[in-house]
Amino acid sequence: MAGPMRIRAASADGVTEVRVLMSHPMETGQRRDSSGEPIPAHYITELTAKHGDKTVLTAYMGPSVSTNPYLAFKFQGGAAGDTVQVSWVDNKGESRTDEVQIR
């Protein structure tokens, strides 16, 4: 169900901007389905972004983050061709890791 993340990382003037679009339902646990049963919560809890071996961002999320979460951040350093790796874990223990090369 969880498809690949779309990650873009672009470096300019020594700063790398990373944009991540995750594919995840981010169910809050507050909604009900058509028969009135609550839909169990299912959301990403933690995301880690690494530039090479160095962690550049750790994000903790709650169910208030939108479906198919989008995240953008910037870090100093990073050159074209370096690898940025992003991984997330959700509250059901599912996880996904994708990586992209900085342009």
Binding site: V15, M26, T28, Q30, K54, T55, V56, L57, T58, A59, Y60, M61, G62, P63, S64, V65, S66, T67, P69, Y70, L71, A72, F73, K74, F75, Q76, G77
Partner: peptide
């Protein structure tokens, strides 16, 4: 109902500039 949408831990070298989308 869940007040806190997200927190970000920024190590040195990461700029204080984050964007996301919330409900």
């Amino acid at each position: 109902p869940n007040m806190l949408a997200a927190t970000f831990a920024l190590p040195a070298g990461t700029l204080a500039d984050v964007q996301t989308r919330v409900k």
